[in-house]
Amino acid sequence: MQTASTNINEIMGHSQELSEFKRGTVIGRHLCNKCIREISLLLNIPRSTVSGIITKWKQLGTTATQPRSGRPLKVTE
């Protein structure tokens, strides 16, 4: 049985980071000449995510997650 918070999370679109295996699978299917739409349907991942993974792989040569930009930590003396 699902709780109300689970349903809200599904509706609001809280996402999780994809595993290294799933990102590798996206690249593998891309190398097998599958289109983004086919990869998206096969792996049940949004097309924009598949496109982003492929673009990052082409630009950086890796599917590993990169550090995110953000406010630097406060340095104390």
Rank of each mutant, 00 (worst) to 15 (best):
M1P: 10
Q2F: 11
Q2I: 08
Q2S: 14
Q2A: 15
T3M: 10
A4K: 15
T6K: 09
N7Y: 09
N7Q: 13
I8L: 12
I8T: 14
I8C: 01
I8S: 06
N9S: 13
N9F: 05
E10C: 07
E10P: 00
I11V: 12
I11Y: 09
M12R: 14
M12Q: 06
G13T: 08
G13V: 09
H14F: 12
H14D: 05
H14G: 06
H14V: 00
S15H: 10
Q16C: 08
Q16R: 12
Q16D: 10
E17A: 12
L18A: 03
S19W: 07
S19A: 08
F21L: 12
F21C: 02
F21K: 15
F21I: 04
K22Q: 12
R23D: 03
G24R: 15
G24Q: 12
V26I: 15
V26Y: 02
V26C: 04
V26Q: 03
I27N: 07
I27R: 06
I27Y: 07
I27F: 09
R29H: 11
H30D: 04
H30I: 01
L31D: 02
L31F: 15
C32Y: 14
N33D: 14
N33W: 02
K34D: 12
K34A: 04
K34L: 12
K34C: 12
C35M: 04
C35T: 15
C35F: 07
C35W: 04
I36V: 11
I36M: 10
R37V: 09
R37G: 02
E38L: 07
E38M: 05
E38T: 01
I39D: 12
I39L: 10
I39E: 11
S40Q: 04
S40N: 07
L41E: 15
L41I: 03
L42A: 13
L42G: 01
L43C: 04
N44S: 12
N44F: 04
N44E: 14
N44D: 09
R47P: 07
R47F: 00
R47Y: 01
R47D: 10
S48L: 03
S48P: 00
T49L: 02
T49D: 04
T49K: 10
V50G: 05
V50L: 10
S51K: 08
S51P: 00
S51A: 08
G52S: 10
G52P: 00
G52M: 05
I53D: 06
I53N: 06
I53L: 06
I54C: 03
I54Y: 06
I54T: 03
T55N: 08
T55C: 08
T55P: 00
K56S: 10
K56Q: 10
W57E: 03
K58T: 02
K58P: 00
Q59T: 03
Q59D: 01
G61L: 06
G61T: 07
G61I: 07
T62A: 07
T63K: 02
T63S: 05
A64E: 11
A64Q: 11
A64P: 00
A64C: 01
T65R: 13
T65E: 05
T65H: 14
T65M: 08
P67K: 09
R68K: 13
R68M: 04
S69F: 04
S69M: 02
S69A: 07
G70M: 05
R71Y: 06
R71P: 00
P72I: 01
L73D: 07
K74G: 02
K74V: 12
K74Q: 11
K74T: 14
V75I: 14
T76H: 13
T76L: 15
T76N: 11
T76M: 09
E77A: 14
